[in-house]
Nucleic acid binder design. Structure first.
Lengths: 201, 201, 201, 201
DNA sequence: GATGAATGAGTGTTCATTCAT
DNA sequence: AATGAATGAACACTCATTCAT
């Protein structure tokens, strides 16, 4: 009697749906707290905010590190993708660069943990994280090559992002968008009209 | 004025000398370890390195925060002063600006806690800390006014310092002085030839 | 007796067959893992190995203790029965005793939980467990009475078994069958030629 | 003024005396609980019984394992030494063996953790623990060589001790000293009059 | 005044047991 | 009935701060 089968996919699905909802609640809560306070959060706080017990949290993420990584991977990717989209929608190569930074920095300003993660992933060969970002910047640099001063590397652009990201972050509360000025200044410094060679790193 | 001192002044003096020596040892040790690891250090480590007991440390600094502040005030001042000196010794206003940043960033790269402290003192009205820095940059800006693009504020210069300081710090281990390139770029962006107005913050 | 069953017997039967299969799978898996690791196992591990969910496991055994007891009862009985068989197949009373111990100890060496259980069931009036064992040893003792030193009680034989069982267990990995020597020694100590009276317990 | 010196040994001593008292209280409490319940104790229970806070416990023993080891080393040594003394005071080689076992087993009966430790130290080359014990038994065996059946090894004697120790332990509550009977039996099995060769281990 | 031992709330993590689906 | 996700009380361990000597 197939009807009585307890292993029907439908039933399974039902359970999973609930679990997935919980998992998402956990990730969402974690993302929220981590954006506010960085990665050094009490797991209990995450559990509380997501409305689940400790066990549930640990069922989905056996180590705190796993959750942190998951949130970081997700938020970092979304953030990088949003910035990439902003670049794509721009009209010209320079606007692409500008819009990319503007979008990215706006994200940095709101997410402490993303900024913290740079320190961890800077030397990390993991294809997500910095490398993902570098790839986008590499392309933007290629497209804007003629507008950029000679010798500017992709690493320069990455470091500039991180650097301004930090500024964006901690001015965000008291002086939101003050970083926009710094961005404009720095980008102007990247223009081709500046011929002075950059020092070896 | 000895009149205000109760009991035998001599004894007091002797003890005070000792106490001051201890206090200095504590601050020195704290500065050392905070430069390496930032402000989130185990107080025990500081006591150990300074060769005093926990009680002595807490007699001088009732809260960890007190010690951290003291160290920060001191190191921040020294750091700012060193940068100011570099500026003073420069030949022209632009070199003064450049040398100031170079010296300051070199300091940031080696002192984790100073970087961390920006976040704390950014909004702090305390005359030491950021305001002290701002005063110097204000002067440098005034001297270089004609070379700077219109609309550049002292706050821009302060934020640029903090921003590059962060870059300096975390590239210092793997790519020392990579921040020099970023510095050159940003400063070029500050030159008077750029006429595009900066946005309101 | 179908008369006592409420509702539709057919359905019930079907379900029960399934339930029984599950129950057996649980017990089997539990037995396996308890032999390896003792009774202090994660219940999840048992559920995993038996291929059932936690709910099913707890439906059959509301407390972990219930499952442990069930497994112990079963494995203990089988183990005792195997030893009894070895005794039955022996040629003479002394060989019966020897073979019983050899078989039993060989079982102890391979089943951690059985050894652990002695501590629990030693004082347990439950007819399975120790009493079951005692009954067999009582019979073996009776048959070998003339070969045994005066005053040897069944309890002595039971305790000897447990004692050697422990030795068997923890030498099994590094020095398998080293316990055989101890068994021979102890049994020789039980021979009738030793007339020295045993102390009151 | 040397009188004021805060680093005088006397002061140091004073503090240490207190600390040592605490340390001893911790070890004592731990030994007590571990004798009752084995090594798997809640550290909080130890802290509670010794009347100190968690921090104090962890100051003296940075890891639970450290405390467990300390207690085990101490109690094992005392226990082994007590047994050795009993052997020394005996009148003849056989009595030495008997008294050694009696004393040792009496200790086993009262100390769960010592019994547990056998499993850990059985293969441990550490000079404390089993090897210490083996050395004593080696000597007792040598002295009683002529009275022992041929082929008895020191390892046999060690394993016999552990084996009977287990029996002693779990009969101690309900049937104290029942193990005395088993000891007599086993030792009789070791006597020279038994010529049957022991199997290879 | 100096010392460093003592304190205990808080942190990451596990696991027997319950419950919604 | 079966599933496995959810629960939360423990547990080992850390560290800013206090206190007896």
């Amino acid at each position: 009697m197939a009807v009585a089968e307890p292993h029907t996919p439908t039933r399974r699905r039902a359970l999973r749906a609930d679990a997935i909802r919980n998992r998402e609640a956990i990730v969402e809560a974690a993302a929220e707290v981590m954006a506010e306070q960085g990665a050094a959060v009490d797991v209990r706080e995450i559990a509380r905010r997501s409305g689940v017990g400790m066990g549930t949290l640990y069922r989905h993420f056996p180590k705190k590190e796993d959750l942190v990584r998951t949130v970081l991977d997700q938020d970092f990717s979304r953030w990088a993708e949003a910035a990439r989209q902003a670049a794509i929608e721009a009209e010209d190569p320079w606007a692409a660069l500008t819009d990319f930074y503007r979008q990215a920095l706006s994200g940095c300003a709101r997410h402490r943990a993303i900024m913290e993660s740079f320190a961890l992933t800077w030397t990390d060969p993991d294809p997500t994280g910095i490398p993902q970002l570098r790839a986008v910047l590499e392309e933007l640099r290629a497209r804007a090559a003629e507008l950029l001063r000679p010798g500017v590397t992709t690493d320069d652009l990455v470091l500039l992002l991180i650097s301004l990201g930090y500024a964006a972050q901690f001015t965000d509360e008291c002086r939101p968008h003050m970083w926009n000025r710094l961005l404009l200044i720095s980008l102007d410094g990247l223009r081709a009209e500046h011929r002075e060679p950059l020092p070896e790193s």
